[in-house]
Design a protein around this nucleic acid. Structure first.
Lengths: 160, 160
DNA sequence: TAAATATGTATAATGAAATTAGGCGGCTTT
DNA sequence: AAAGCCGCCTAATTTCATTATACATATTTA
């Protein structure tokens, strides 16, 4: 994987697009004082290099009736069951994120649910998977931070 | 907050845009056999209703030199310090997500770092915040699932 | 029941933006 | 210094978003 070198122009482009993927290239061009063609070429290069892997909408899940977020830590009998359990978890759509982890838990995941009752169903489903010893749930009372933007600045300016 | 009712057309539009926010409205229109004008109107309505709150890029952070992900649980002296600690945490760009939680921890957050050494610096910073008793770290060995798409299907088809 | 109104869609016209080709200038390599 | 390369700009072309208008269907009101 040849290390792809990004310059300030690339950074600025990413910075704007990470906030709004539909920012017109012409706007970006104007702000950076370059041509729209250049913006286009840069973005295409970053896509080809695999730096930009896609784009997605930010949705208000509360308004969609999914106001419940929890993190669930999973304990396994044996770590060799990890792959099997992940496959079962992958069949539960409400699990939006899952990581294999070191530390307390073997697997760690995030779930989104309609309400506590719905969350309970989901957690029971996880508990019921073969190989899962027990789970530990942390319910989110408030999502206080969720921000890719600051990280970008950190990456590009070597802050932190 | 008047409950906004989404129909199948809206669902399908969200479905396509959540995968790629730059999918041309003309393409969506073709696939759904409606006019591009209608797609436009629907999207605008969902934006106005606050269902679509924005868009963002998916980036390969590994290629940007940030290959380290960890979750950090934070214990506080008193829950009344929550807000203060959150503000301090908010000053650390590598913390990309933070939740106030019930359960083991008072605050729960996700960090992205270059490597273990960098992660250590970040965790020490968190530990040093006034009011933080101690922290517990779970290092991600592998991000196995990260998918909004399945959740959408669950939401719209009442699966799960 | 009929008239009036609202809702939502399609059509089509307009303007904006993405995309591409060609050429120019600076930099590197030989 | 010449040749080749790289990246950018300009400008042309094509595609797309956006808006106005008109029509049809459903809903409300008289």
């Amino acid at each position: 994987m040849a290390k792809f070198k990004l310059d300030d122009t690339d950074h600025s482009i990413l910075d704007m697009l990470i906030d709004n993927t539909r920012t017109p290239f012409t706007d970006i061009a104007k702000k950076l004082d370059i041509s729209a063609g250049t913006v286009h070429v840069r973005v295409k290069k970053m896509e080809e290099a695999g730096i930009i892997t896609g784009s997605s909408l930010k949705l208000d899940y509360k308004k969609l009736g999914y106001s419940f977020i929890a993190y669930v830590g999973i304990f396994l009998n044996k770590t060799s069951q990890t792959q099997f359990v992940l496959e079962r978890i992958n069949e539960i759509p409400s699990v939006t994120v899952a990581h294999v982890t070191t530390g307390k838990f073997n697997i760690f995941c995030k779930i989104r649910a309609k309400n506590t009752s719905h969350a309970k169903d989901i957690i029971y489903k996880i508990d019921d998977i073969d190989g899962v010893t027990r789970t530990e749930t942390m319910i989110s009372l408030e999502e206080s931070i969720n921000d890719k933007k600051r990280l970008m600045h950190s990456i590009f300016n070597a802050l932190d």
